Simulated assay, not measured.
Amino acid sequence: MVNFIIKYLIIAVVIMFGTKYIVGIKIDSFQTSVLVALAMGFANTFVKPILKFISFPITFLTLGLFLLVINVIVVYVVAHFIQGFTVQGFIPPLIFSFGLSFLSTVLGWFLDKD
């Protein structure tokens, strides 16, 4: 449980500072970045697999490139539900999604050792 809290606090800090360098994504406060981190974790766990299943034919026809669109959709869904988190365009949420995935993977290597 402590590793879970540490992981999401680190992700929230990186979100807070990372959005200063990604033009097109804005976050109001640290509390909002914590909510975004938790919401992105929830969306990647529950919403993204459903979108992948529904869009399998399109993903197959585009040789997997439609998964990039799904990543952007997930960021927009989170932005819709979290006040103080705004997203514009296609490339900024794509970069944001890649950054979160990379960070989550690296933190998982170090914090999820049991």
Rank of each mutant, 00 (worst) to 15 (best):
F102L: 15
Y8L: 14
V34N: 06
G18T: 01
V72T: 14
F46Y: 15
G24M: 11
P57F: 06
V75Y: 05
I10V: 15
V23P: 08
N3A: 10
N3Y: 08
G24T: 08
G89E: 09
K48D: 09
I6W: 05
I6V: 15
F60Q: 09
Q88T: 04
D114V: 06
F90P: 13
S101Y: 12
P57Q: 14
S33G: 05
V47P: 05
I73F: 13
F66S: 01
N3C: 04
G18Q: 03
D112C: 05
T19Y: 04
G18S: 12
V36C: 05
I58S: 11
K26P: 00
I91C: 11
N44Y: 12
T105I: 10
Q31R: 10
D112Y: 08
K20I: 00
T86F: 06
T86K: 05
V23Y: 10
L100I: 09
K48T: 09
F30S: 08
T32L: 06
V13P: 00
M40R: 01
I91Y: 14
V77L: 14
W109C: 09
Y21Q: 03
K26S: 03
N44R: 06
F66V: 00
V14D: 00
T59A: 15
G84L: 07
V106E: 04
V2T: 14
I91A: 11
N3S: 11
V75F: 06
L38Q: 02
F4Y: 15
A43S: 14
S29E: 07
K48H: 13
L9G: 03
T45H: 13
D114R: 13
T105H: 10
V106D: 02
K52Q: 15
L35V: 00
F17W: 11
Y76K: 14
I54N: 10
S104I: 07
L63T: 07
S97G: 08
I15V: 11
S55R: 03
L65Y: 05
L51R: 03
T59E: 15
T45A: 14
T59V: 13
